[in-house]
Design a protein around this nucleic acid. Structure first.
Lengths: 193, 193
DNA sequence: AAATAGCCTTGATCTAGATCAAGAGAAAGT
DNA sequence: ACTTTCTCTTGATCTAGATCAAGGCTATTT
């Protein structure tokens, strides 16, 4: 249940066996079936979720009912509405499972407690957040700089697993384009080898 | 020289006088004239810069010579190419001064040393990075969800200082639209009161 | 094995925003 | 004071990508 998590943490800070045992106590394990919600818009996001197994997504829904993908998370990723989680204000996003999933949930009090009791985890989260900033910066630049086709090519290059594992219409939404446009782009790319 | 910085840090973690004195030793103060570069694309970003006074921007330039604004930073903000700084790989962005500026520079070794010697600063940066993630998430959602006009209205509402202080064509670039489009949007908004 | 729903594709048409072009102020440099 | 360079505006035209519509293919569900 904690295998993926410990591997992930140990890549950034090395934990003793005792620290690993202590760490376990902060989490609430949870299983989620495909299509089940972890969080719905306007509820407060009470947990950050670490994905041990499966695949989740976070997204918002606009006035016209269109979904806009913010993030996908599979084995080894965290997912939450960061703002809602930290501020305890209502969430702006939905989070649900694209594939059946096993999660480790961490509440805000447990998160605060963990970072204070285990300084290595303060460091782990700082590094995690750093990497998250870098990823978001890239996506942002991509979204304001490149054409739909270029965005898709860059995503395929930087994240091949995502392109293989996620349904195409969700990738389109992640890129900020329509499913029709993505379909045509892919057809075009095949056409030119 | 450190006034804005200490105020900013003390909002997140409270420092003793001794800690403040110790903190000063990690920084390299620097003044930058309008239009001067702090960082050029392909150089390694050796410093994170805290802005004590003035206004900087980070941006990249595409194949056709168009600039795309990633961030603006004035009094109380940090600016860097986060990826380049942490990885010591060549930078993807340029950073320069829009207004004359006074900066506090922090190198990677000093950053690492600071977070290890002063645990409060580890915490400060974790919180800083958290807030940065939240801001970038918002901008990302905005960029894939809303029309040009809606993006501009949301930016004006959430960041009035930015809209007043930054030249219009740079705001257009920040929003991922052309200066002509932004000009027309503003004309239109005035027209309807 | 049917029925249903979800996903992808293709075609026809429309539109928000880009591009190209030119001029007018405002600011900055000499 | 006089260029020169920026910045913003307005008009005319173009285009990438959206929207609307429909059909086929694959999974699920019953």
């Amino acid at each position: 249940m904690f295998d993926v998590f410990f591997t992930h943490v140990n890549e950034k800070v090395s934990l003793t066996i005792a620290e690993q045992e202590q760490l376990k106590t902060f989490f609430l394990p949870k299983k989620l079936r495909k299509k089940q919600y972890l969080l719905q818009e306007d509820d407060v996001c009470r947990y950050m979720a670490f994905v041990e197994k499966g695949l989740l997504r976070s997204y918002n829904v606009d006035d016209r009912g269109n979904e806009h993908m913010l993030q996908f998370a599979w084995e080894g990723w965290w997912i939450a509405d960061t703002y809602s989680f930290l501020s305890e204000e209502p969430a702006a996003y939905n989070i649900d499972a694209i594939e059946d999933a096993e999660l480790l949930l961490l509440s805000l009090p447990q998160f605060e407690e963990m970072t204070l009791q285990i300084p290595k985890m303060e460091r782990y989260f700082r590094i995690l957040f750093q990497n998250n900033i870098i990823a978001k910066e890239r996506r942002l630049i991509s979204s304001i700089t490149y054409s739909a086709e270029e965005k898709y090519l860059r995503l395929s290059a930087s994240n091949p697993e995502l392109v293989q594992r996620i349904p195409q219409h969700l990738i389109a939404s992640y890129l900020g384009i329509t499913p029709e446009t993505l379909s045509r782009i892919r057809k075009n790319l095949l056409h030119r080898q």
